[in-house]
Amino acid sequence: MKRVGAYVAAGLAALAPVVAFAGTAHAQTFSFTPYQTSRFDAGTPNSSVVVRNHHGVIISYGDSAIMYHAPSSTLDALGQALFLQNCASCHGDQANGIPANGTPGAYPNLIGLGPATIDFWIESGRMPAVDTAAVEAPRRPPRLTHDQALAIAAWVNSLDPSYPYIPSVNLKGANVADGAALFALNCAACHTIEGDGDALARGTYAPSLRNIPATQVAEAIRTGPANMPRFTGNLSDYQVRDIVKYVTTEIQHPRNPGGFGLGGLGPVAEGFVGLLLGVGLLALVGFWVGERQ
């Protein structure tokens, strides 16, 4: 009781002009390149399966869940030609982010990012970019084919071989329940629990996952494109496989046993349906039941 009295006294005393409002906006400017992907200290993969070519260079690694393959070095020449044609105007002809007559640092340096990163950006249609000044590169139908993407990845990788390679996910034996739990813990905070994505800070957004192939899901998890965090040591290949399984089945093909899924917007859409279709329709019926005098 004594303590409560103290609170009352303090509450009254707080009416004194000693008033402090704390916490407001602290705007801070970032040197921020729109599509930058951070450098990646992957080191040598310690996977259960490691395949080397006759020069001793690792060409594949992984395990029964995901195998990572380097794109074939026979594509290097083709890749360089495609790169000079499609990418060099921004990333420079050495892929180091320095265009021929531009300022270094204005565009991302691609050296050392690993083939999975290059493949993800090209195959998801984000590169070559339509609007290099945009905050987000939206997903589009790819401008280059799968083989062309592999060729470019092969050439960039030949400049400074690095990981991760391009994942090939084996969904057999994946545990969709574990995938659901991991999705809720790691992915839903941005992409929403139904996988629709949503707006983030400063005009960025988390894209919808409704229409993304398994390989790109795994690539995104492993490489962390743009503002997405990268998941490396904290998710095993088996866990990534489970997440990919969950995304490509339950997220992309929800069962919706209860009827139409209402666009996955949850209570916002439900509220509109409830008010317009429910109350609105019934009010119209009431308009018929009653008289208009």
Binding site: A188, T192, L265, V268, E270, G274
Partner: peptide
């Protein structure tokens, strides 16, 4: 999850 809202 993102986009969590209460009922209307």
């Amino acid at each position: 999850s993102y986009a969590v809202q209460p009922d209307w």
